[in-house]
Design a protein around this nucleic acid. Structure first.
Lengths: 199, 199, 199, 199
DNA sequence: AATGAATGAGTGTTCATTCAT
DNA sequence: TATGAATGAACACTCATTCAT
């Protein structure tokens, strides 16, 4: 009913002619995760996600019925990927020492981990207010504890999980890095005294 | 949601004629904390804060130059109160057992603590992106570790702090409560083996 | 409200494999009329019509070049059906009494008529702003007056037509029903004094 | 949180410096009625109203909590004004002839009345779907019938009201004007046979 | 012939912030 | 000092319409 006028003139630069783009959905979800890392749940908007994915705004709202749903699905994608990654960390663990190595590295790792850590905490916080997200955090907790429990037994796994989460949070926020030895010592102690033979 | 009619001269019951209200600033800050608990940094607005404090909208923007500043000062008020409270928890601690009691209670405490825990995590997350808030988290970490260190030595204090933070976060999100004994056991283990005489 | 998941291959039960559905067009027009009854010209959208007709969105835009055209054709279908129905009402009218019966019933009839009445007024109002629709209202007015005039002569037909339209509108909006006798009396008076023998 | 940049640069031409504008509300309501006349309930938007009132968009949403409420209040303003006007039409009516003159003039009047008539029908139609508006139509019907009944008695007032409404609607839509004599005759007949002395 | 994917214009609404009083 | 009015930017979301298949 209104005159369209400058139809199809605008549109950024690198875009155009990406009609029929399978994986579009996934690209948008990844972009959403990028925005969540950068600006948090507090700062995510359709527009930022669209810009980040180099996709028109309408494309985001087309694929996801609401911003909430976009976040939910993005977080689901995150926990999914994260679980697999987490599992993979432990494939080569054969001894108590190996385990400590892997976990200390997990806590102290650099920027690559930073992204993951931030998303984890954003998710936890958002889950406090959104039951749909609570499903994800519960599943994630269960799965990470199960993985740890293979080496430690269930109670120690729960403690360890809490300790790791706390250490990761603190690493995230603090400016200076804790000495490696202290990280290892904290993990070792939570694992409990070394038994005679192995992990 | 409001229209001038509902705004303006009205204001419920308790307001009006509170000219020269010296506690106005503090009331607004507490209201801001309430809103942060309820809706998070993602959901705070001047209007919600004003409504919560039963104060005109203009009063909020008058006392605080920007929403960011309001949040910063509210968080500052929170860490301030929290530090004092935290310190107070330990005044009667005389033994290792006392310490475990107090910390287990800290982790497991109900709704009263929930507010505090949520604010703590909101602050941590927001601090990732705002240096002004990082000052607060650093000071808060330093102070809580110092308090703990009186009983444990510095390294154990750091571990313990991480463990507590992780446990509190998990308590916050999870639906079922962990058995008290496990909480105590986790703390005890992180404290390290009991020494001969006391805490 | 829909996301690709909910759209796409799904579609409830009765759809699918209705390739080459010759009545598709008519089903869409009827669906459009349903939506016009429910939400008015103010509320009609391609999506609502498609959902109502249980037809993919693309099907609506495929068959009708624009929403305006869809409305126009739907209204055309309405006046067409309505004229036939209207005509049919009078086939058995043999006396002045019969005529009054039929018209009173027309004014007072229940839900079945409600649909028709609402569409009539939606059309009239839309026609004020759209010349294409004015063609329909003029033809409809002409045809209904012609029908009435068979029993009353042209001037009385015009009056009667106006009276009926006004009464129907009032019936539509008002909550309580006017007594039958008053409806009949109003019609009778507009018909003019009974002549000796019949209608 | 975003950079404002070109704050306060835009803003039309004739505007500016109309802070503290009492009557702003009323101006907006009148603008809303203008838009309703022009584009109907189907076409009203905040932006059109703002432009018509030469007022910033924010001003419209500031004064009215929702578009629905804006329409409701605009229609309320309309019925209010209309009732007064309607009443005034009859102040000088002293005879049956006078009454017929006034009503025929009411039906046939030109553009000035057109606005009023369109609003009346928009309101009626919208009232079908919105109970808040139904309050207005009921009150309006009651009041106009009361006015008419002063000259005709209650039953005739109801008939007359319906007839007038129907005739006005038809006048609105039709292209050619009905002869004055027929309008008068229709009214006269609905008034019933002239009694001996007067109105 | 038919339709799912896609897109850009535009909508209602919220809100931080400014400003006159 | 304090606040109601005001405003413009931005947001989530809807939708008519286009287009590749």
């Amino acid at each position: 009913m209104e005159t369209p006028e400058e139809r199809g003139t605008s549109g950024g630069e690198g875009r155009r002619a990406r009609r029929h783009d399978p994986r579009r959905r996934e690209r948008v979800l990844d972009a959403a995760l990028d925005v969540l890392v950068e600006d948090g749940v507090a700062g995510i908007t359709h527009r930022k996600v669209a810009a980040h994915a180099d996709v028109p705004l309408g494309s985001v709202t087309y694929h996801f019925a609401s911003l909430t749903e976009l976040c939910t699905q993005a977080f689901a994608r995150y926990t999914d990927q994260r679980s697999t990654e987490y599992e993979a960390l432990f494939t080569d663990v054969a001894s108590r020492e190996d385990l400590i190595d892997v976990l200390a590295e997990l806590v102290r790792a650099g920027p690559s981990r930073r992204r993951s850590a931030i998303l984890g905490f954003e998710l936890h916080l958002a889950a406090l207010r959104d039951p749909a997200l609570r499903v994800l955090t519960q599943e994630w907790t269960r799965s990470s504890r199960t993985t740890l429990a293979r080496f430690t037994g269930p109670e120690a796994a729960a403690r360890l999980d809490a300790l790791l989460e706390g250490m990761i949070m603190q690493t995230l926020v603090s400016t200076e890095r804790e000495p490696l030895e202290e990280t290892r010592a904290a993990i070792a102690q939570t694992l409990g005294p070394a038994t005679g033979t192995g992990a």
